[in-house]
Design a protein around this nucleic acid. Sequence first.
DNA 1: GATAAAGTATGATAAATATCATATTTCGGA
DNA 2: TCCGAAATATGATATTTATCATACTTTATC
Lengths: 145, 145
Amino acid sequence: MLSNSSKYALTAVLYLAAHTDDRQKKMVKDLSASTNIPKAYLAKLLQQLSRHNIISATKGPKGGYYLTEENRNLPVYSLIEVIDGTQRMESCVLGIEECNAERPCPLHDHVYPARDAFLGTLKKMTIGDLSRDLKNGSSFLTAQQ
Amino acid sequence: MLSNSSKYALTAVLYLAAHTDDRQKKMVKDLSASTNIPKAYLAKLLQQLSRHNIISATKGPKGGYYLTEENRNLPVYSLIEVIDGTQRMESCVLGIEECNAERPCPLHDHVYPARDAFLGTLKKMTIGDLSRDLKNGSSFLTAQQ
DNA sequence: GATAAAGTATGATAAATATCATATTTCGGA
DNA sequence: TCCGAAATATGATATTTATCATACTTTATC
Ligand code: FES
Ligand code: FES
C-alpha cells in the first residue's frame, strides 16, 4: 500500500506537525531518535520533501525542519505523491495494466470501494488534520516503550 | 498490500481455477504465456503452493498443474499466507510494531475498517468463488490485448 | 526398460530498495 | 569576519526482491 519510504516520511512529518512551528524546529538527529527511523535515510527523505515544499527547513545553527501553516494545509496525499509517485496507490491490486471498472480483475469489486475510500481520505485530509489526534494524545507514532 | 509474488501467484491460481481440473492440466510454460508472468519465477511460486497443497500437480508427460475440488474450496487468504506470510497484511500501515486499536497510529481509524473488510473477504472467499466471474467473462486477468 | 516430458530443488544473477558516508553550502553567533 | 552548526547534494554499500539457470526426480508412453 505505502512504501517503507513513505511510511517513514509520513511518520516524521506527523511528528513535525505535532512538535514544530516557525520558532520550534527539529534537527534530523532528533527526529531520527524520536521516531526510530535511520538517520541518514530519513535525512534523504526530508530533503526530497523540502525540495518539493511539503515541509520547511532552515540551515545553519538553530536551524532544522519544521512545518508552516501552509505545510499543514497540504493533503496527506501530496507527501505520498512525492515519495511514491501516483502509480503505486492507484494501480490494480492484481497488477493488471490499469485498474478499470470496465475490465475489472477478479478482486476489483471486493477491494476497489475500500481502497477508493482510503485514497479519498488521504486526498482530503491534511497533515494538520491527521496530527490533531496525535497532539491530544489519542493516536501514536511509536510502539509502547 | 499484496507483494508482487502473491499477485503473480493469485493470478496464476485463478487461471488454473478457470481452466483446469483433474483431467485438464496446464504446464508452467502455458501458464506463463497466458498470464505474462516470467516462467522461471512462476515455476518457483507454483512449487511453493504445491508443496503446501494449495494447488495440485502431476509430474511426467501429460502432467501439469491443476486444481481439485478441495483446492477450489480453500480461502484465497491461504495462498497469500503461503507466499507473503501473515505479517504483511495485518501490520500497521505506518509500520508501528503492532496494529492495535488501544494505541492506534494516526491513520488507523481511517484505514482499519476498510482493510479489515478486505481481509475478511480474502479469508471468507474461496479460490472457486473468485474464479466464477472469470469463467463467465465478467472479470479478467490480463489487460486488453 | 529406455526415453522424454513434465514438476522439484537449489543456487546464481539482476534489479530495486533501504541504508550509510562524505563533501558542500548556508547561516547564526562570537 | 570567522567558526561551527545545520541542511543539501551526491554517491557508495547492503539487503531484499525479482528473475534466470541448471541439475535432479518422477512418470506416461513406446
Ligand atoms: S482492476 Fe484490479 S483492482 Fe481494479
Ligand atoms: S495502528 Fe496503524 S493501522 Fe492500526
